[in-house]
Design a protein around this nucleic acid. Sequence first.
DNA 1: AAGTTGACCCTCC
DNA 2: AGGAGGGCCAACT
Length: 112
Amino acid sequence: MYHIEDATPLQKYQAIHGMVYRIPQGCVASYSQIADMVGLPGRARMVGKALGASFNREKIPWWRVVRADGRIAFGADTEHGQLQQSRLLQEGIVVKNMRISMKYFQWCPEDL
DNA sequence: AAGTTGACCCTCC
DNA sequence: AGGAGGGCCAACT
């Protein structure tokens, strides 16, 4: 039986990328949520690593991943923060003070 | 080889 | 509301 835990770091990154790719437009997911969904509970940091490693390289909607409390992981005064905010706004997500209401916008696959 | 560092998070104060 | 403290793990020094 295949355990993601036994996979190589690269394979884990690929699993993470694949899951982020599935976040629908107009929704966000938290780092820990993605980690849980790929079978790596408690590895939220690895999700950040995976996204950072592929930034500008893979075509994945990285801007749909935010912190568990709904805050954007970059400062409001950074390029990344501004870019992420504008991309989210473009998708109709309400961003106030670099924060999103997870209650309304968090991706809940169960609800499909 | 040991210490530090992250696009993090959770449980307590 | 905000900090401390611990957990997490791969990639750096």
